[in-house]
């Protein structure tokens, strides 16, 4: 148990180190310095700036400083808006993104479990076909295609909800739906196949042989077992929602970290791109780790370390 957790933590740190180093190497491989594109700066100012950002030191030293700062959770400063630290930028934008993300995950999980179960219980009948068609459409239509249509009809022509921007709860509805679309389809499909799989298990026959009513067989025997695989895709799901937030926040002009990240990519604000990438990576890697722990904790069958890594 403890050995497994320690092993996982080491693997996690290794992944983080790889991504941090990779980002560093990539950023340093860009020709010129970050200030070349700026308006001509006086010689002395440029020198001061270089010194301030340790850019005048040899690369290995820069790498060490960078890693030391990372270890202290210091992600550096923006070049384009030099008053702001990356930590501040994250602190500003992430809560907004997180709210959207959590809403989207809740929609995906709740609706997905209901729809997936319905499809499985009506296997090979109309509701099953209808839900599966919806699900495959959900997987196929990119959110940046869906979102403008939601805006155009629900937001603009029928004027039901705010078309964009950030304010009260109504502003979150359309982006949450757009963001939830793909995860919803994934959860639905997984839940359907999971329920179908559990339905064929011997212990379901046992439950039926006990004379339990179908509703109880479903809630206490099928659902309980079918829900576990959903936990395993929580990692990829969160990753999908995170990258989805880049486009969704851009389309709906929501002041979240995703929109900010996209803008910084566009402006080539390298320290921010670097810092936010590392933050996102750390977040996702940590989420995967937590999901794995939760899975082993809730499923009585799985003992830590025994699960085959898929």
């Amino acid at each position: 148990m403890l050995r497994y957790v320690v092993k996982r933590i080491l693997l996690m740190l290794l992944s983080l180190w790889v991504i941090a180093t990779l980002t560093f190497v990539l950023m340093k491989s860009i020709p010129g310095d970050p200030f070349t594109s700026e308006k001509k700066l006086p010689e002395q100012t440029l020198k001061n700036l270089m010194a301030h950002y340790h850019l005048d030191k040899p690369l290995p030293t820069q790498y060490l400083i960078y890693m030391k700062n990372l270890a202290n959770f210091d992600l550096g400063f923006s070049i384009k808006s030099s008053t702001r630290s990356v930590n501040e930028i994250i602190a500003d934008g992430f809560p907004v993104s997180a709210q959207l993300g959590i809403q989207a995950i809740l929609i995906a999980l709740i609706l997905g479990i209901i729809m997936g179960s319905t499809a499985a219980l009506r296997h090979n009948r109309l509701p099953d076909y209808a839900i599966m068609v919806l699900a495959v459409i959900g997987i196929s239509i990119p959110s940046f295609v869906l979102a403008p249509f939601l805006q155009k009809y629900i937001g603009w022509q029928w004027d039901l909800l705010p078309i964009a921007g950030w304010g009260d709860f109504t502003h979150t509805i359309l982006p949450s739906i757009a963001l939830a679309f793909l995860p919803l389809a994934l959860v639905t499909r997984l839940m359907r196949s999971s329920v179908l799989d559990v339905q064929g298990q011997d212990y379901i026959r046992t439950a039926q042989a006990k004379g339990l009513p179908p509703v109880r067989v479903f809630t206490h025997h099928i659902l309980r077992n079918a829900i576990f695989p959903i936990i395993t895709i929580m990692g990829p799901l969160v990753a999908g929602i995170l990258t989805g937030s880049f486009v969704i926040e851009k389309i709906f002009s929501i002041p979240g970290l995703g929109k900010r990240f996209v803008e910084d990519i566009f402006n080539r604000d390298y320290p921010v791109i670097m810092g936010v990438t590392i933050f996102y990576s750390a977040f996702l890697i940590l989420m995967n780790f937590i999901v794995d722990l939760v899975y082993t904790w809730v499923d009585p069958r799985v003992k830590l370390g025994e699960r085959e890594v898929e």
């Binding site: 290794l14 790889v18 990258t243 990576s281």
Partner: peptide, 12 residues
């Protein structure tokens, strides 16, 4: 490598 977020690496 699996632990690295796919699209983020691609973006970088």
């Amino acid at each position: 490598l699996w632990g690295l977020p796919y699209l983020l690496v691609v973006i970088m």
